[in-house]
Design a binder for these strands. Sequence first.
DNA 1: GTGGTCTAGACCACA
DNA 2: GTGGTCTAGACCACA
Lengths: 118, 118, 118, 118
Amino acid sequence: MFSIDVQCRVPIYEQIINQIERFIATGILKSNEQLPSVRQMAFDLGINPNTIQRAYTELERKGVIVSIVGKGSFVTDNIQSIIDKKRNEVVIRIKDDINILKNLGLSNKEIHAKIFKD
Amino acid sequence: MFSIDVQCRVPIYEQIINQIERFIATGILKSNEQLPSVRQMAFDLGINPNTIQRAYTELERKGVIVSIVGKGSFVTDNIQSIIDKKRNEVVIRIKDDINILKNLGLSNKEIHAKIFKD
Amino acid sequence: MFSIDVQCRVPIYEQIINQIERFIATGILKSNEQLPSVRQMAFDLGINPNTIQRAYTELERKGVIVSIVGKGSFVTDNIQSIIDKKRNEVVIRIKDDINILKNLGLSNKEIHAKIFKD
Amino acid sequence: MFSIDVQCRVPIYEQIINQIERFIATGILKSNEQLPSVRQMAFDLGINPNTIQRAYTELERKGVIVSIVGKGSFVTDNIQSIIDKKRNEVVIRIKDDINILKNLGLSNKEIHAKIFKD
DNA sequence: GTGGTCTAGACCACA
DNA sequence: GTGGTCTAGACCACA
């Protein structure tokens, strides 16, 4: 289910965070669903447990998952806010890029044509 | 003219590269125009000359500027290709982000509304 | 395994780049093999780690090696293209030199005799 | 007659040295022929007289030209040794490169085909 | 421990 | 003065 690209310059723990958030946002992971244990996931991906731990800690800090000692880690029950946050992040990034294109001399019409064609 | 943000996680030398490329792409820097010397720019920005040197070396490798020992650094005379490359980069980034929004459950119409409103 | 000549006018970082490329092209370094760490190689050669870092950075940009923070630097898995590129470089250099010899008044036959004797 | 490429990474004074040596070796400049004065050549090429001076000084040191105060600079009367030296330089460079190709796994036959085809 | 960035400062070739 | 290379050494993120 999870996969990482060690050659990618995005840190592994961030890759894991992104995947979990995306799986939640796209409905692959449901509210309250249990995640693999730190050790299990580390074993499956062949990487250091510390790296998974870091991802989980960060996700808990962001309110995306809840970790309960002795029981495991679970997707939060309020996933709608995560979806909204994810969408907003991307929309803002796109808007910034559209402004850059304007500065590079493209009109609204040209931009529209380029990003929606193909 | 140039400015950097030391807090930003983007390395300083990359910030400088981006700024110069954008200044060229937007016509602020013209073909064959001389850039500030490595030392001058370092002094103006209050950073180490090595960092500017690295930016200039990278820009020369990319064919954006030409550096001549004893004379200075100059914008290449073929800037159109730089503008085109810059535009393409951004367009591709936007397309990728639009696909992410689709995966997050937004329709084409909703995406369109969000990124072009305001 | 590696060695440098500080007297040589070729910069040290280029000497290292050339050696690594040649070791790969001649099969001494295999695909995915791990290279000495930046600090280790610097220590072995008695030079500054920054100089090795520069060589490794350049090699990664050329697609010859892959560097992963926290793990190390590794020969790319696609080394055939490196070998081909290396061969072409040298062939072109020889052809240029043969033309120079022709301009210096040597016939094809004389050139052939000179460069293949002993 | 003379020309320089300021963008080229070969120093200007070396470009001038190379051109004069090649003109001699190929018969364009004859024994005892007078060269342009330092100032004249600097003016024609639009560069600093110091740079030409440096080239002439080097050429005199190598025995290629003779400079006489108040009269000018002249091609040496023993140009055969220059031609021979030039030829030898190039032949040695080619031999080195052929050895590199051998190390890269090419047979004599393959090398021969590559460098004499086209 | 591993690579990546940056500062401070020296020295070089070249114009 | 101009770019290019290198050393010495610090600090960072990551595994």
